[in-house]
Design a protein around this nucleic acid. Sequence first.
DNA 1: CCCCTGATTGTTACT
DNA 2: AGTAACAATCAGGGG
Length: 110
Amino acid sequence: MPKEKATTRKSAKTADKSAGGKKKKDPNMPKRGLSAYMFFANDQRDKVRDDNPGIKFGEVGKQLGEKWKALNEKQKAPYEAKAAADKKRYEEEKAAYTAKGADEDEEEED
DNA sequence: CCCCTGATTGTTACT
DNA sequence: AGTAACAATCAGGGG
């Protein structure tokens, strides 16, 4: 199993060990679909802020985090469902990307 | 064939 | 505009 690390993917990236940056970002790389957490945050963000009026983002994020884990599979179900729906969206982009985006030129009708 | 790592998404608030 | 913890998730490369 992967070692859960406080990876700040951005800037500091998750490189603390010999990771070796390979992976190349393709030109038409479709942005992955959102995660269940994204949808969860979208719904709870308002609730959490209402429960913790005036709290900063840091608190909200942590609250959301532990609450998210507190949810049962059925609670996450609707969020995962949306995530899956978005993922499907991504699949389409990815398919198109892997299909021709490989070298095909992008023609944008202006 | 299997594991891991990097990259990406969205929230809000601050700088 | 970018970054900060929070969690998820995928795709590809390397062993």
